[in-house]
Design a protein around this nucleic acid. Structure first.
Lengths: 276, 276
DNA sequence: TTGCTCCTCACGTCACGTGAGGTGGC
DNA sequence: TTGCTCCTCACGTCACGTGAGGTGGC
């Protein structure tokens, strides 16, 4: 045990420097911060003022998230902050690249959270009764398709690929047939546009007229939509309304972005526009 | 080797899912993504369509930086994106906390880079000759001290603690004595203020008047300042100028924020205001 | 003897990647 | 035989932290 009052045991030095004892031993092992003196018989480490200065440099650079290996190089090569410039600039690029990636993740998370919150509120509030509604005029981009309804997903995907950043709101589908068809139905997956845009090949951009409609939110798998259609068409007939094609479906909640989800929780709004 | 065309070898499945073979084996080991079938004799792993769906879920959640353990819990508990809400919100907090920390680091790095660049330009441009200068009026906060010059650092530190975010530019020091004193010098460490502010106890806020001065940049340790003082006072005498106290020192480059630095690279500007 | 500070050594963390050495069927 | 795909097992990464078991002096 040295008597020199300048020397600190590892415990004392840990207090002074703010580095844990384990960290100090680790830095010693890595050659980053050697004690000023090691007692040959006990193996005790002793640190001095120069160690403290070095410890502060290491701690500062670690706070800036420099890797230990680069800190070692810096300590070997730099004697002055001026020599640090290149290192600082590189580290800033590293940190900013990480922030950029995190911003993307945080943005995606925020988007998903907003969507799910909305869907949760819908499901909670849903009385699922037939109601009358006023629909405003709506600028949409749509893909006219003929075939099976189950192919609608491809149309939605095409819209997403071609016009992704102009689209807004939930996916819609317009039905142009007067009756239900299994094989060669004529329908049109579409999305609202946040701004007018030139229509790419195979995509039509137009404005759906403002109209009154009868609306019903269907809860459950798409295979059971026919039940809700029977209900709402029955009501339209009872009221003597003249349905105006195309009718509309809005997919309030379908398969999620992560999970395909439970189809019994899907929510689909059916809208039957009528003449007034 | 099963003949079922629905089954994929690990190599094929890696291609389809975008997960590396090593990652697939690791997920298997961790129980996160078990193959649909493992050949008992060869140990070969075979995956099917359900594995693919699960693989996509895992990959999506990994992209959002969820830890594997949480993904395992999510897969066990959630069947729908709606059930994810709490997880998504927690993860967003995690990511945003990391961004907050990174913003601080990036800000500190940017500040240091700007300071060092400035110092590097000064050192590169320095002719270090005596010149005449017009000084504008300057609003400063200072700490009047009596004692040894070497204590000036404490005054600077005090200013930083009390008024940190109002201060701008480099540290200054004003010298009120008519001659050099060793022990009971009267000097005043100070900083320019970016905005007027009420003076805390022990700190004086005032405006230094606009004036003409003789200026010289001293390069080297503070101990050698006297040489530069001799030079500049000699020149003032030759020109017959009437020096107006306090004289000023500006620490253009001193010890860095990381390294104490090499004193031979310190830059200190001496300013002698004179009556016109 | 108890308590305190110090020591070494092995292992864990997190999500994989690397590489050695081997197998089985074309 | 060569080449290909698959396998297991051990070890490395990054910057430490945890914990077991032990020492030496008050």
């Amino acid at each position: 045990m040295p008597l020199d009052p300048q020397l600190f045991s590892i415990g004392e030095f840990s207090q002074i420097s703010g580095l844990s004892i384990k960290t100090l031993r680790f830095y010693d092992e890595r050659g980053l911060l050697k004690p000023a003196l090691v007692d040959a018989t006990s193996g005790y480490r002793y640190y001095d003022g120069a160690s403290l200065e070095r410890a502060h440099i290491v701690a500062q650079l670690r706070r800036l998230e420099f890797p230990l290996e680069e800190i070692a190089r810096i300590l070997a090569e730099c004697g002055d902050d001026l020599d640090l410039l290149a290192h600082l600039e590189r580290q800033r690029r590293v940190i900013e690249e990480r922030m950029r990636a995190d911003r993307e993740i945080a943005g995606d998370l925020a988007k998903m959270i907003a969507l799910e919150r909305e869907a949760a509120q819908l499901a909670a509030a849903g009385g699922f009764a037939i109601e009358e509604k006023e629909l405003p005029a709506l600028l949409v981009a749509g893909v006219r398709m003929t075939g099976r309804y189950s192919e609608a997903g491809r149309g939605i995907a095409l819209l997403g690929r071609k016009l992704g950043r102009y689209l807004t709101g939930k996916p819609h589908c317009l039905y142009h047939d007067a009756e239900y068809r299994e094989e060669d139905a004529s329908f049109e997956p579409c999305f609202a546009l946040r701004t007018a845009v030139a229509a790419p090949d195979g995509i039509a951009v137009r404005t759906l007229p403002a109209t009154r409609c009868l609306a019903l939110v269907h809860q459950g798998p798409y295979e059971q939509l026919s039940r809700s259609y029977r209900k709402i068409f029955g009501e339209a007939k009872r009221r003597g309304l003249a349905i105006v094609r195309p009718t509309r479906e809005i997919y309030l909640k379908g398969p999620g972005m992560i999970f395909r989800g439970n189809p019994r929780r899907y929510l689909t709004e059916i809208q039957l526009p009528y003449a007034t």
